[in-house]
Each structure stands twice: as C-alpha cells, then as structure tokens.
Write a protein that binds this DNA or RNA. Sequence first.
RNA 1: CGGGGUGUAGCUCAGCCUGGUAGAGCGCUAGCUUUGGGAGCUAGAAGCCGGAGGUUCGAAUCCUCUCGCCCCGACCA
Length: 425
Amino acid sequence: MRLSQYFLPTLKENPTEAQIVSHRLMLRAGMIRQSAAGIYTWLPMGLRVLRNIERIVREEMDRAGAQEVLMPTIQSADLWRESGRYDAYGKEMLRIVDRHDREMLYGPTNEELITQIFRDNVRTYRELPRTLYQIQLKFRDEVRPRFGVMRGREFLMKDAYSFDVDYESAKKSYETMFNVYFKTFKRLGVTAIPMRADSGAIGGDLSHEFHILAETGESGVFYDVAYDDLMARDQVDLETVSKLYAATDEKHDPNHPDAPPPDRIRTARGIEVGQVFYLGTKYSKAMNLVLPGPDGAEIVPEMGCYGIGVSRLVGAIIEARHDDKGIQWPESIAPFQVGLINLKAGDAAVDAACEDLYAKLPSCLYDDRDERAGVKFADMDLIGLPWQVVIGPKGVAAGIVELKSRATGEKQELSVESALARLNS
RNA sequence: CGGGGUGUAGCUCAGCCUGGUAGAGCGCUAGCUUUGGGAGCUAGAAGCCGGAGGUUCGAAUCCUCUCGCCCCGACCA
C-alpha cells in the first residue's frame, strides 16, 4: 500500500477526549474515530489489526474443533424471557421496539440464542460434544464507557459455547478452550495470565479470567512467580494451573490456602481480555434443552461459554506494547510488516530503489509522500509497524538501506538483498 | 446512577469574570526557499462560539432550559 493513497488520518496532537495511552495512540495513528460515546468506526489501519486478531482467534478455535456460526445482533425479548434474563439483565441491555411494537434487544451475549439453536436442531446425545462460536458485535449499554475501544458499548467479541453429555466431558471442553486461549494470547504477542474468577451475571462455577499484564491495567493482579515459567511453555494443562495462585485485587487473599509466601507473589496490573466459564445446566435447564441419553433416559446437556474481547484486545495490546513515540505491533497482528520510507520522493534513483523493494515485499506500507524526513519518521514510529526500511540518496549511492526494528530501535545498514532476505525470512 | 468538568476553525486552546460583532499555534491551499528526525518566509481558505429560549440598543461573554463529550466513584468482555 502506498501511503500517498492510503486513508490514514494521523494526528500530531492528543485529542482531549482520550485519556489513556492506547486510546490516544489509536486516534493519533488513524485507526479509529469515535462516533458516539463508546461507539467507534474502524478506519483501514485499525481494521487491519482487528482482522488479524480475529484471524488468529479463528484459527485456534477451528484447530480445536470448534465451528463458526454467525448469530444476529438483534434478538427477540421472548427468547430472553425463557431464561429469565430479560428482566434480570438491567439497563445494560439495549432494548428496542420494532414497528409492530415487538420487544427486541441488541444482544449483549448469546447463551439464549445458541441454546435455542441446539434445542431445535440436535436430536440425540450422540451429536455431542459440540462447540460453536462466533465473532460478532455485541452491545452493552455501559453507564460510563471509557478507555476508547477497551471499554466501549459496542464491541467485537468472540463467544463460544460448548455442549456436553456430562460434567466430565464438559470439563474436557473447558480445558480445551483453556488451552486455546493460552495459545491464542501467546500468538498475539502478549502475556495473559489465567486467574480464578467469579462467574458474574452469566452464572456457573468453574471460571478463569485471562488478564494481559500492562502497567495501565484496570485491576491489580497477584500471581505466583511460577507463572513466569509456565507462560513460556507451548501448552499447559488445567490441573497444573488450577493449583497455582493468581487473583485480581478484588479476589486476592494472601491467606488463601493456595497463596504462595509473599516473596513468591508477583504484583502487576492487568486488563481482562478473555474469560472461560463452566455453566453447567443453567441455560439448558431453563430453556428445556433435553436430549435422549445413552440409556434411554433424558439428559440435560452441560454447557460452557468462552469469550474473548477482540476489539478490546487491540487497545490492550497497545497498552502492553508502546513507547513515547507510538505503537509497537507484534508481527503476528501488525497491519503491515514493513514500513518503507522514501527519504526523497521525486529523486529518480531513490524512487527506483524504493519501487524495487516495494514490489518485493508482500506486506509493506510505502511512504511515498512528498514530506520531510522528520514527518515520515514520526508517522512511521507512531503507527508502529514492526520493521522500517529507510532509503535515501546517500544510501542509494552506497548501495545500502537502513533496517530498523520498531520494538528495539536497533538499526543496521544492509544491502537491499540482505534486507530483503531478513524481512522475508 | 451519584459527584466534578467541558463544548469557540480539522487538532490543541485563548477570549467569557468586567457584553461592542472572532483570535493564536499546529494542520490545510498556493508560491519561493529548504530537505536524514514533526522546516522558514509570503499570501490565502476555513467557525450559526453545541442547541433553544430569555435579558439588552447590542450576547461567544449574563440568565434559564436542553444535548453532547470527558474525568472520579459504583458496574462491566
């Protein structure tokens, strides 16, 4: 993509509406624009990141055997009356009346809908276990939206639902998802520690929250130092993790039987980006999801639900990865892998060298604008692509380009060939 | 939902107290000069001063109401 053609409205100054760093950077880097309190438009740069996160989430869910569906955002109130949540949910639920005076709502979550789908379309326990998921917009009418995309009212969420014949099987589904989360966050380039959690309004008992560690996190977290090693692994099992202590400030109890001695507790701040719940039969029972079981007797499937705040992750990852100049994207979700800076647009030799390299880089944002060098460096640092290639008249004359890592700031001068080899490896 | 702010040009803000008909910096447009870390000069364009009432000869400024947005708290992916 040529920057001269790209819709990328960057800002030099911080908009007053944004108070925290990820929100500021997302506005300044031209990723989002606010359209109403807690409601955002995703501009091309932001959308690329959002899609990349989605892609990784989707790949890991699919790999674990979950199947993607897409449920509507607007649902009928009657469905929610079946579970009793239409009245229980409160003002966070956005309620709508259609032209026929039917009561509708914009879904804040989807247990009811997915349970209905199962009830209406599954005939026997032999079809279990199944895990379905979707990546869809949700709406929760927060009293006080804030922190940009991290605490919006409209947000993009991956929500998954598992159905099993019994508790043992449900626990396996839970563990599978637990591992999916572990791998997903790892691929996203952040450390997300699973903490024992309350199950909140959704209900159930077995539950973990995944918190990304970031200095600006909303809640304080306390965890066993053993997590440092654990997080470096490729896979974890639930048994191991269940024994390790990790809690947010509201649940933290130094006297808890599992709590390690004080010198083995790490204190940090965290942003919740995912949660896994074992729901039991709360919804299946309430909504009369009943299947013929192995011995002919009826069974009520055991459910689990698993959420990842996809849009929130964009902000959360920025909170975890930035410096005073801008964002530092992990390669896995970067909107482009390389930013190519032409220091003298209009100079035949420099243009030719840039065009040549641009053609050979599959994921490259080429700053071909007629701007001063300082502007280009500043914008490139702000948007945070993992690699920068700088080409100017001096370098071209000497047959070299400069390669810079955004995250480490490390620069090296290389021939075009070795720069290409480095970037394409 | 309680408490506190704030709304003036695309962005950041001054002007308001003490009414007299709109300002700065950055950005934008054009020209010249510059050109390896957010350039300089010159000339421009750009605002129903959030909205509605009221007071007044006259309102960005004073009064009333209203809407938006932000912050703290309670609540949450």
